[in-house]
């Protein structure tokens, strides 16, 4: 509510600059997709996407000019999302250990991406 009272008028130039940056980001994603960086493929695509999302949140959604409380709310949302991702990904990372056995974890994916699943044995 109080955020409304301090309405910030953003110059059109800023919007255009952000729009330009978003377009560059999109072009970069498409361009990079033509090369195979192995495990870095997803990382690069997601990094560009995150930067673009941050720009949208900060400028198009006016968070950069909002009250500290609004920033805390946005931060909380991102933090909670990070909890979901972190705990889920750690499960994926260590789930194999249990089922395949310790030690076999160093090998998978990187060497033979298209290889059949590490092992169906014993299941």
């Amino acid at each position: 509510m109080s955020a409304h009272s301090e309405h910030h008028v953003v110059p059109v130039k800023v919007y255009l600059a952000i729009f330009g940056a978003l377009m560059v980001g999109t072009a970069l994603t498409v361009f990079v997709a033509q090369f195979n960086f192995g495990v870095l493929n997803v990382l690069i695509a997601l990094t560009v996407a995150c930067i673009k999302a941050t720009l949208v949140i900060l400028f198009f959604m006016h968070v950069a000019y909002s009250s500290r409380l609004t920033k805390v709310v946005i931060g909380a949302g991102i933090f909670w999302f990070a909890i979901l991702i972190f705990m889920t990904i750690t499960d994926y990372r260590v789930r194999q250990d249990w089922h395949v056995g310790l030690g076999s974890l160093e090998k998978p994916a990187a060497e033979q991406p298209a290889a059949p699943q590490p092992s169906g044995s014993g299941h």
Partner: peptide, 18 residues
């Protein structure tokens, strides 16, 4: 309460460490 959801998945092939 947001950090306990995995207790529904002890038998669902969730990692033991998790």
């Amino acid at each position: 309460g947001f950090l306990v959801w995995g207790h529904h998945m002890f038998t669902s092939s969730q990692s033991m460490y998790q």
